[in-house]
Design a protein around this nucleic acid. Structure first.
Lengths: 341, 341
DNA sequence: GTGAAAGCGCTAACAG
DNA sequence: CTGTTAGCGCTTTCAC
């Protein structure tokens, strides 16, 4: 329960000098500073951030708005962000706006309005106009990871390019009957990850003159989702492809599990490529486009801290690098063109 | 930027009356209260929690100390906790003390000392004596989920019983060559989840007179971990079992993937049972002991809010219910007693 | 039932 | 370089 007054008393200086010595504000002689710092350490003093922020207006805290915690990409990003924030001496307040929950509205209207943070990081959030207005009204820097918003700095990957690359890899191996698993109706194309990755697949197919083979099956961005879609795709022999371009690694893994369970060989009967760089990718020898979410977490924090502490930086839109990692879940299609099972 | 003074002015009362009307403190006439509440809504007033906590000492914020975000059990628990806290009008500050990170010490020594919270929830943390001392010195209620600490209220499952139950299920089917995947050396028995689940397996084996068959293979509590261990167990024909009792569903899933990849049938050649109630369990038809982590999150929040708001409750140690869910990943051992592959 | 005044723990002017 | 003074936005005695 020791306050700065105790530190000051022990060091034999005034509260303000103690404050300056500890926060590094104005001029303090080296000797005095040392005595104050020592005194603080002796009684284990840690400033109350509440009191401090009341006067400075800064909280040393960042709000993170995230739709899921328990999906690989999001969990990974969150851990990356937490690490980077700790390094910058910031606390992290979590706002979990799981879709389909009534709490989303409450978070935007009530919890965010408390302004417990110096800035906000949104992850994979496509805010509605009303939500965007709320965000802006907070009068704090906002940065976005994945899903850019006009006027807001962001880090994201080129979802279209990533999926195009994945599909091109399969085309390059000689596949033509390639199904995309994960897409949604094309109208949403640019507004969702699903849609953009579908668009990349379509682009690659059309560019290769395979437009007639375009086919996509919707799926949740999860292993069970990919499994269900995989069962569908594989179950129908008439449209069973020789390759699958999945919207994410989780989806890809799900389809591989479904395929192997059906007795198909992966690769051989079926080649699968995913997107993400998921921790399961290696176990499944999954060919994938890595996007290193943890690094993205670090990058987005950097952007926010820049806005918070740096000299007025303009809006930045960063494209995070990705790379195709080829593993043995993809191969040339079988010469006879027929599946084994 | 509107403060309570603006609300008071608009309602035609003093700041103190406005405060009472909004926080429900002392006596306010119904008419006045209504006018104040209306005024607050009109200008979109939300009290600054910083200023409020400076005087009340309460922050309406809870700290959550968690080792992982991106493991299924932990992610699920975290989402459950977040939901429950929001319902109670609390914010959640995340402290991610990933093992093997240098930040763990920093969190205990520095970040927690800021006391930005009214209470703390630890998840699967076995605090060292020094850490425990830190925790206690915060002078705030602490509750623990999984891994009880003397003097601290907790919610947990009976890890020993759970694993015993899983193993007994296999024994009941007629298996005797049952390997446990996930355990650690027995000396740690009671101090870690790994150890306790190993102990449950051992208990069941010994009780059934199968002591000579006791065998365990260490593994990370993850799918890749279970996969690696599975490869090991299956690869050695001499000690290849007819059944596996896994320390968790992630481990179980990993071993199933390894087994199927090797050409073994699950069930048939191999029966596998896990623990957790993982979202993949259904996809793999995995027999498992469900422990519903999300509900545990709700339960632990309830315990903390009790300590925070309720009438001085004594230390409570709650055992969360679990149940065996039998699915078709387990069956009687093959009559001939030999594996197919 | 309501208002005036004090003060939570800290930092930021402003003198000296 | 250091101490004194004021005040961040709110809740809470304490009079009225």
């Amino acid at each position: 329960m020791s306050g700065i007054a105790d530190v000051a008393a022990l060091a034999g200086v005034s509260k303000s000098t103690a404050s300056r010595a500890l926060t590094g504000g104005g001029y303090v002689s080296d000797g005095t500073r040392q005595r104050v710092v020592d005194a603080a350490r002796v009684i284990g003093y840690v400033a109350s951030p509440n009191a401090a922020s009341l006067v400075t207006g800064r909280t040393k805290n960042v709000g993170v708005i995230i739709p899921f915690v328990n999906r690989w990409y999001f969990g990974e990003v969150l851990e990356g962000i937490e690490d980077a924030l700790l390094a910058g001496d910031y606390d992290l307040t979590l706002y979990n706006v799981r879709p389909g929950t009534t709490s989303r509205e409450r978070i935007f209207d009530h919890f965010l309005a408390r302004k417990r943070f110096d800035g906000i990081i949104t992850i994979g959030i496509e805010p509605s106009p009303r939500e965007l207005e709320r965000l802006v009204s907070l009068d704090r820097p906002v940065v976005a990871l994945g899903g850019q918003v006009p006027g807001i700095s962001s880090v994201s990957i080129d979802d279209v390019a990533v999926s195009r690359l994945a599909t091109e890899h399969l085309i390059g191996l000689g596949h033509s009957r390639i199904v995309h698993v994960g897409g949604e109706r094309a109208e949403d194309a640019s507004s969702s990850v699903h849609g953009r990755r579908l668009a990349g697949y379509v682009e690659a197919m059309e560019a290769a003159g395979l437009g007639e083979h375009i086919l996509y099956v919707p799926s949740d961005m999860s292993v069970p989702g990919g499994y269900a879609a995989g069962v569908l795709v594989i179950g129908d022999p008439r449209r069973r492809p020789t390759a699958i371009s999945a919207a994410s690694d989780e989806v890809a893994v799900g389809t591989i599990i479904a395929a192997r369970r059906t007795g198909l060989e992966v690769p051989g009967d079926l080649s699968v490529v995913g997107v993400d760089g998921h921790e399961y990718a290696e176990m499944f020898s999954l060919t994938t486009v890595e996007q290193s979410p943890r690094d993205q977490g670090t990058a987005i924090v950097e952007l926010l801290l820049d806005a918070l502490e740096g000299s007025g930086t303009p809006v930045q839109v960063l494209l995070h690098p990705t790379r195709l990692v080829v593993r043995s879940s993809t191969s040339r299609p079988r010469p006879d063109g027929a599946t084994r099972a």
